[in-house]
Simulated scan of single mutants.
Amino acid sequence: MTSIDLNADLGESYGAWTLGDDDAMLALVSSANVACGFHAGDPTTLLRTCRSAAAADVRIGAQVGYHDLAGFGRRFLDVSPADLTADVIYQMGALDGLAQVAGSAIAYVKPHGALYNAIVHHHGQAKAVVDAVLAYDPTLPVLGLPDSIFLEEAERAGLRTVAEAFADRAYTPQGTLVSRSELGAVLSDPDAVAQRVLTMITDGTVQAVDGSRIDVRAESICLHGDSPDAVAMATAVSEFLRANDIDITAFV
């Protein structure tokens, strides 16, 4: 049977502010990209999310990002490579400690938001993230956009790389993600998203914003837990894939 990993960004609530329904998403995905406190998530939220993920047998990934709570990590920061490496190590260590208390551990690393998009092309920051993973635990896989400088650097360094596609984000004809500042960058129709994911898996393509079809290769497909229709989309994707004999299984 064909299988695919479904991942979601979780643990992004902060203090009195609740973002998303983590428990509902954990019942539907196989991997959880858990915030590490720099772009979102407070220690209590992160520990609770790790405990819920461990109970649901969902793999925990460290979703590392820029130190930018005010911007939710969605603004590019011109951080020096040395500072970025230290920031990423700090975040991995913090989340791993909470995950181990919860009876689990971080199983992979996925950059968040503006950092994720920056290291598609930004060589210095891509290498800084790779250096952080190598320093902390070189057995950890890293998730990233296919053909990105980040995955190229990670492969060169001997890390396991996991190519990722996005269920609920629009693509440019060049295979990158449409900026969230543009209309239509985030998709919200559960049935359309489910069909889109199936096509990604079975055909290896996705329709770009200009109507062209571009190649995608993915071991893991992301659904954003903070979208208003996140649970409905994850449910539709999960049910549609299983109806088409595609199993949802973590890549690690």
Rank of each mutant, 00 (worst) to 15 (best):
P81H: 09
P81S: 10
A82G: 11
A82T: 11
D83R: 12
D83Q: 13
L84D: 00
T85L: 08
A86W: 11
D87W: 14
V88P: 00
V88D: 00
V88M: 05
I89S: 10
Y90V: 04
Y90R: 09
Y90F: 15
Y90I: 08
M92I: 06
G93N: 06
A94K: 05
A94C: 09
L95E: 00
D96H: 08
G97C: 02
G97H: 02
G97W: 02
L98F: 14
L98E: 03
Q100D: 05
Q100G: 06
Q100L: 13
Q100R: 15
V101E: 13
V101D: 12
A102F: 04
G103K: 09
G103P: 00
G103V: 01
S104I: 05
A105T: 11
A105M: 12
I106C: 01
I106E: 00
I106K: 02
I106M: 03
Y108G: 03
Y108V: 04
Y108N: 03
V109F: 07
V109G: 02
V109D: 02
P111H: 13
H112R: 06
G113Q: 01
G113S: 03
G113R: 02
A114D: 02
A114K: 07
A114L: 05
L115R: 05
Y116H: 03
Y116K: 07
N117D: 05
A118H: 09
A118V: 06
A118S: 13
A118D: 15
I119D: 04
V120D: 10
H121L: 15
H123G: 13
H123D: 15
G124H: 15
G124S: 12
Q125Y: 13
A126T: 00
A126Q: 03
A128C: 06
A128M: 09
V129P: 00
V130P: 01
V130N: 08
V130H: 09
D131P: 03
D131W: 14
D131Q: 12
A132K: 04
A132W: 01
V133M: 11
L134T: 13
L134I: 15
A135Y: 12
A135L: 10
A135G: 14
Y136T: 07
D137P: 04
D137G: 11
D137W: 09
P138T: 10
P138G: 12
P138N: 14
T139Q: 14
T139L: 14
L140M: 05
P141Y: 12
V142Q: 00
L143R: 11
L143Y: 15
L145T: 04
L145P: 00
P146E: 09
D147E: 15
D147P: 03
D147Y: 12
D147Q: 15
D147V: 08
S148Y: 01
I149E: 14
L151T: 05
L151H: 04
E152F: 10
E152Y: 12
E153V: 10
E153Q: 15
E153I: 11
E153T: 08
A154N: 12
A154Y: 06
E155L: 14
A157C: 13
G158F: 11
R160I: 13
V162C: 12
V162T: 05
E164G: 07
E164D: 01
A165V: 05
A165C: 07
F166K: 02
A167Y: 07
A167R: 05
D168W: 09
D168G: 10
D168M: 12
D168Y: 11
Y171Q: 04
P173W: 07
P173C: 11
P173H: 08
Q174P: 09
Q174G: 14
Q174I: 10
G175N: 07
G175P: 00
G175E: 04
T176Q: 14
L177C: 13
L177T: 02
L177V: 06
